[in-house]
């Protein structure tokens, strides 16, 4: 498509920030190294120069108070995007996230809104070890009052970030660093991807894969392998795990009669269990095989080239699992 430009996921999100900050002067960026340094991954590059220190705020390394202040700033009329550098560090802001941000709108009976975006980067694969690789998306998804977004393509990442900034709720925006350099087309103009609307990334008749974030890309590789064997895989990317677009997932499963749910996070008590349960409860009569799941084993993530690749399910494992489902 000639009118579309190509951007990486990282730059697509950055473009969303540029556009939203230009559109609405209440939008500001708060976090460690987000200003002068342009972000430790270059994810806020140029914002400081364009919008200045009043709107791109470098902070001390004080996650609990940085986040708490963001909540107070949002209550008082800003629409901040606060960055928690690594997904693991979300543990440091859990109190203010769970006990303040998520509860204030409800407890004030709508009197206050808390329009903020907490963006954080996760991703197994950088050999960063147990304190810099884990993703707590299932933790935050468990908290009523929070929305949780997990983009995978550049266009989605941009459109979802814009939607998240315009949303009047605390939105946890979880980026996977392993997708940062994935390139893709970006539609022209002010295109919003609504929160809570799934995307059927690939159509197929034989089996449905439900996956978010990087798992969509790995699933696509598996689908390519299986296509060579005559197996047509449908991939549904919910894009947000809260709110979750159940209807699109269920419609796909009703069509294919088989479902495999993937996650780069831990299997036990994770999002695959939740989605599998929804499918089992609401599409049981359509299923030709038990709902299957593949996710990270319940173990910490070693900082090791030999061990780390065992954490996230790969395309071979996914393909094999689907073969088993079809032969069952």
């Amino acid at each position: 498509m000639p009118s579309e430009k190509m951007l990486t996921v990282k730059d697509a999100i950055l473009e969303a920030l540029f556009e939203e900050m230009a559109r609405d002067d209440r939008v500001c960026i708060i976090g460690e190294d987000v200003g002068v340094a342009g972000g430790v991954f270059g994810q806020t590059k140029g914002l400081f120069e364009k919008f200045g220190e009043a709107r791109v705020v470098d902070t001390p390394i004080s996650e609990p108070a940085i986040f708490g202040m963001t909540v107070g700033a949002a209550m008082a009329g800003l629409r901040p995007v606060v960055e928690v550098m690594f997904g693991d560090f979300i543990t440091l802001v859990m109190d203010q996230l769970v006990n303040q941000a998520a509860k204030i709108h409800y407890m004030s009976a709508g009197g206050y809104t808390v329009p903020l975006v907490l963006r954080t980067a996760v991703g197994v694969g950088g050999n960063l070890g147990p304190q810099h690789s884990q993703s707590f998306h299932a933790w935050v998804a468990h908290v009523p009052g929070l929305k949780v977004v997990m983009p995978q393509s550049p266009a989605d990442a941009k459109g979802l970030m814009k939607a998240a900034i315009r949303d009047n709720n605390p939105v946890v925006f979880i980026e996977d660093r392993t997708t940062y350099n994935v390139k893709g087309p970006i539609p022209d103009g002010d295109v919003i991807v609504p929160l809570g609307k799934a995307n059927v990334v690939r159509e197929g008749r034989d089996v449905t894969i439900v996956a978010v974030s990087r798992m969509v890309q790995i699933a696509t590789k598996a689908a390519d392998i299986l296509a060579g064997e005559g197996i047509a895989v449908e991939i549904v990317d919910p894009r947000c795990i809260v709110p979750l677009d159940r209807e699109t997932i269920l419609a796909s499963v009703r069509k294919t009669s088989r479902a495999l749910v993937l996650d780069a996070g831990h299997l036990d008590y994770g999002i695959t269990g939740e989605i599998a349960a929804i499918i089992s409860e609401q599409a049981f009569d359509y299923l030709d095989a038990p709902v299957a799941r593949l996710a990270a084993p319940n173990v910490l993530i070693p900082c090791n080239t030999a061990l780390e690749p065992l954490i996230v399910p790969n395309e071979q494992q996914i393909a094999q699992k689907i073969r088993e489902m079809l032969n069952a």
């Binding site: 693991d88 560090f89 960063l128 070890g129 147990p130 070693p302 900082c303 030999a306 061990l307």
Partner: peptide, 21 residues
């Protein structure tokens, strides 16, 4: 070999912890 640089400890010499956070 699991911890790497950021999580190296050696309790045998009284090293309790390294934290990368």
């Amino acid at each position: 070999g699991r911890g790497g640089t950021w999580h190296m400890t050696d309790t045998s010499v009284g090293f309790q912890s390294t934290s990368a956070m």
